[in-house]
Design a protein around this nucleic acid. Structure first.
Length: 519
RNA sequence: GGCGUCGUAGCCAAGUGGCUAAGGCAGUGGAUUGCAAAUCCAUUAUUCGCGGGUUCGACUCCCGCCGACGCCUCCA
């Protein structure tokens, strides 16, 4: 057994961190509640995927074989509403919005998902699951609908810490069909004109929660290791999923329930005062990020900010805490991330090697340990310590925010080394020091890869000019300026630099030439 | 009202019952530079919302208060 056994995970069910022990040694089954694809995703929807993508990367790095499932909910009331409003079939809405979602994931470097099952592709499993629940005495059909009987489950409410008695339910049509207010729909009979599927209870569609129980069983088994989602899903969604699966199988559904914090808009706090009961402010007035408040256009945001910036921004804080989202915080994350890209450019400039293509790095913890075991230089010894600290933070409930700080320390150490070893000076630098530099960058790459950072060259943001022409112009200007400087004609050289500065281009005069960077 | 989460410097953000309370952004001083930029060095919380309590000792545990936030079910 080679997997890392020091990992601890916060479990919503027990409200504490627990040692990570999988159902099957060395293997991890992980399920994340994906989107209901009725509208474009907003940035809040990306928190879970980025976090769990990172968790998978770390588990794989730690020696586990991980299978990660993200479901796509492609049948639901909101989808039906969107379909009616737009006058196109529900399936078309779903397809469009699924494409949007996947494109966003790709832009953020979320590429670890193994399966993306859709509810409508799993109707047989869903119906069969409901039949099993009825047979087991945990559900009942009522006038075309089927409900889960919460009173049949003595453990109902343990995930969200609620009692069945406290469930008041709501009034309305379905209430009359239910035995108790807390019962929830497994199957809903179709109204005229609604998309529907045949079932033993007549035409209808699945309730919200059942697809996850059915699909997770199909792909991950009756008991699997990690189930994730946003904090807002704890109740009712996960509570109900948990009840369905446990009651159906007579065994726990999930080892570790993991919930990420929600994103909140930063800036002026909605001053709503008072604590009026159940008085929900409208989304537009609160800091909540939601589709109904017009949040969306994520593709555009990614285009402007670049995906890796957003990813870095999300990973800077702890996954369970609220993330404040705003232009300033995102901008700041971008500034911070630039320091790493500058270091990478510095490396490529001095070694004339591609960081992304030619720097060797460890793909797993054990070989990473081995690579630094014999570290003999001060820099590499220091990096070994920082790396150990990074991994300790990750072991402790995937503390990416803490881990990132070790990355900054590494960058600083490496830059200091480059300065002190005079690597900028072609006459003074030694091959040995360049070798140390390369090894050090390998460590940065190893740890960056865990977070999904520095995996590929950064994509230029949308407003960055068209590549070749700009590069050609810059080469020309830099040459003209170099000539002026050689003649100590600083007036001319400064005119060029200041003019470029106003255009958002910063020049950097180095020992053996000038580089430029667009803000 | 019920069940939870949170409140750390100008801002963002880790963390711990007792070594110097990480790191980033912004700022300031210095090295370097023709001047810059970048990089490096130094510096910016005697203090962790407020008030009590437990303890030899709490920012970290407990109680209260204030403030922010989430959830409280299909039908909407």
């Amino acid at each position: 057994m080679t997997e890392n056994t020091k990992i601890r995970v916060y479990n919503t069910l027990t409200r504490q961190k627990e040692p990570f022990a999988t159902v099957e040694p060395g293997k991890v089954g992980m399920y994340l509640c994906g989107p209901t694809v009725y509208a474009e995703a907003h940035i809040g929807h990306m928190v879970g995927p980025v976090i769990f993508d990172t968790i998978k990367r770390y588990l794989v790095y730690s020696g586990y074989q991980v299978y990660w499932v993200v479901n796509i909910t492609d049948v639901d009331d909101k989808l039906i509403a969107a379909s009616n409003k737009r006058g196109i079939p529900m399936s078309q809405v779903a397809t469009e919005m699924t494409m949007d979602y996947l494109a966003n994931l790709q832009a953020l470097g979320v590429d670890q998902i193994d399966a993306l099952p859709r509810a409508t592709d799993n109707m047989d499993e869903i119906i069969h699951f409901i039949e099993e629940l009825i047979a087991g005495g945990h559900a009942y059909a009522s006038d075309g609908d089927v409900f889960f009987d919460v009173t049949s489950d003595s453990e109902y409410g343990q995930l969200s810490n609620r009692s069945v008695e406290s469930q008041q339910g709501e009034g309305g049509g379905a209430a009359a069909k239910k035995r108790s207010a807390g019962d929830f729909a497994l199957w809903k009979s179709a109204k005229a004109g609604e998309p529907s599927w045949d079932s033993p209870w007549g035409k209808g569609r699945p309730g919200w929660h059942i697809e996850c129980s059915a699909m997770s069983r199909k792909l991950l088994g009756k008991t699997f290791d990690i189930h994730g989602g946003g904090l807002d899903l704890v109740f009712p969604h996960h509570e109900n999923e948990l009840a369905q699966s446990r009651c159906c199988h007579g065994q726990p559904m999930v080892r570790y329930w993991m919930h990420n914090g929600l994103m909140q808009r930063s800036g002026a706090t909605a001053k709503l005062g008072g604590k009026a009961d159940r008085q929900q402010p409208t989304d537009a007035a609160s800091n909540k990020i939601s589709r109904s408040a017009g949040d969306g256009g994520l593709a555009q945001l990614i285009e402007q900010q670049t995906g890796d910036r957003i990813r870095f921004f999300l990973l800077r804080s702890h996954y369970r805490s609220t993330i404040l989202f705003g232009d300033e915080t995102l901008e700041e994350a971008g500034q911070a991330l630039n320091a790493f890209y500058r270091l990478i450019q510095r490396f490529e400039r001095l070694t004339e090697k591609s960081f992304y293509e030619s720097v060797a790095y460890a793909r797993d913890r054990i070989s990473g340990d081995a690579a630094l075991a014999a570290a003999s230089t001060p820099l590499l010894k220091q990096l070994a310590e920082l790396r150990a600290s990074f991994l300790d933070k990750m072991d402790d409930d995937f503390n990416t925010g803490g881990a990132v700080s070790e990355l900054f320390e590494m960058a600083r150490s490496i830059n200091r080394f480059v300065d002190e070893a005079k690597l900028e000076d072609a006459k003074q630098r030694s091959a040995e020091d360049l070798e140390i530099f390369t090894k050090a960058m390998g460590v940065l790459r190893e740890l960056g890869a865990i977070l999904g950072l520095f995996v590929k060259p950064p994509k230029a943001s949308a407003d960055e000019g068209s590549g070749e022409t700009l590069a050609g112009l810059m080469d020309l200007l830099i040459k003209l300026r170099a000539d002026a400087r050689a003649k100590k004609d600083f007036a001319t050289s400064d005119t060029i630099r200041d003019g470029l500065s106003e255009l958002g281009i910063t020049l950097q005069d180095l020992k053996d030439g000038t580089t430029w960077e667009k803000a």
